[in-house]
Computed example of a mutant assay.
Amino acid sequence: MSVNVMIYETQFFGFTPQTCMMRMYLAFQDHLFHMMLVIEEVILKKLESMRHSKLTPSSIRRSSEKFLAYMRNHFDQLFGKMEQVLLRVVLTIPENVLLPEDRCQDQYRYTESQFQELQEEICHLEHRIKAEISAQQALKTELEEQKATQEQLERILQWFDGLDNICREHGTSNLKESFAFLKGNATKLQTVMQEVEDKSKKLHKK
């Protein structure tokens, strides 16, 4: 069998020409072996009807094996010639023939260095795309944080509006004065609580 790697033919046919030839060879061999079994069976049946024959089934089997070996030898020689014809003529794509899917390569030729440059450009573009996606994700996260901060500021402003309304209802029109008043009361309350805590400690010591 041929050992030439026929890559272009394999691309076109979808199988290697050598595989095709091997299957044909095995199919012929199986058919030859089956044919010899049938012939041997017919001879053995004919032998049963011949009462005074000196032939025996074992001698017929030996003769069948010799004839099969003879047929295989001649078949291998004939198949070798047929293989050369098929691989060189039938299953071979001429060098001047270009497959349809490869015509663009013939139209747009490029060198190995150009191909390398193209690969590097593709790699650079992939990095840029990844960076753009990462930047978009970061911007999206920042926008979500700004939205949450905006909502929190709106709640604080609503709270201040409510506090301002409460102060006005109690006769305090200036929100700054209200905070000063609340701070003063909180300081006094803290002082009183400290005095109570000190007196409680003294009582426990006694």
Results as ranks from 00 to 15, higher is better:
residue 91 L to R: 05
residue 177 E to N: 07
residue 53 S to Q: 06
residue 101 E to V: 02
residue 138 A to N: 00
residue 116 Q to Y: 04
residue 119 Q to D: 11
residue 8 Y to M: 11
residue 63 S to M: 15
residue 181 F to N: 10
residue 138 A to W: 03
residue 2 S to Y: 01
residue 105 Q to P: 04
residue 130 K to M: 01
residue 141 T to D: 09
residue 198 D to Q: 00
residue 199 K to G: 03
residue 180 A to N: 08
residue 28 F to L: 09
residue 50 M to D: 07
residue 99 L to F: 09
residue 98 L to V: 13
residue 91 L to F: 09
residue 192 V to I: 11
residue 32 L to C: 06
residue 50 M to R: 01
residue 64 S to Q: 01
residue 10 T to D: 09
residue 17 P to I: 05
residue 7 I to R: 10
residue 54 K to E: 14
residue 20 C to V: 11
residue 78 L to H: 08
residue 184 G to V: 02
residue 17 P to C: 03
residue 19 T to Y: 15
residue 67 F to D: 15
residue 181 F to E: 13
residue 57 P to M: 10
residue 124 H to G: 04
residue 166 I to G: 02
residue 167 C to M: 07
residue 13 F to I: 15
residue 177 E to Q: 13
residue 197 E to A: 02
residue 120 E to S: 06
residue 199 K to Q: 04
residue 81 K to A: 15
residue 32 L to D: 07
residue 159 W to E: 12
residue 119 Q to W: 07
residue 120 E to V: 07
residue 193 M to K: 06
residue 196 V to K: 00
residue 85 V to Y: 14
residue 26 L to E: 12
residue 142 E to W: 08
residue 39 I to C: 09
residue 147 K to L: 13
residue 179 F to R: 03
residue 180 A to K: 05
residue 117 E to W: 06
residue 199 K to H: 02
residue 72 R to W: 14
residue 102 D to Q: 06
residue 97 V to G: 04
residue 70 Y to F: 15
residue 79 F to P: 03
residue 94 P to M: 02
residue 62 R to A: 13
residue 69 A to I: 14
residue 164 D to G: 06
residue 201 K to S: 10
residue 89 V to Q: 13
residue 130 K to V: 06
residue 180 A to E: 12
residue 37 L to V: 00
residue 129 I to Q: 02
residue 132 E to Q: 04
residue 12 F to W: 12
residue 41 E to W: 00
residue 138 A to E: 06
residue 102 D to W: 00
residue 33 F to L: 11
residue 31 H to S: 12
residue 53 S to V: 07
residue 144 E to H: 05
residue 1 M to L: 11
residue 16 T to P: 06
residue 159 W to S: 04
residue 156 I to E: 10
residue 163 L to W: 02
residue 8 Y to Q: 12
residue 74 H to K: 11
residue 139 L to V: 07
residue 67 F to Y: 15
residue 36 M to L: 10
residue 175 L to D: 07
residue 19 T to A: 14
residue 152 Q to Y: 10
residue 85 V to C: 11
residue 136 Q to E: 08
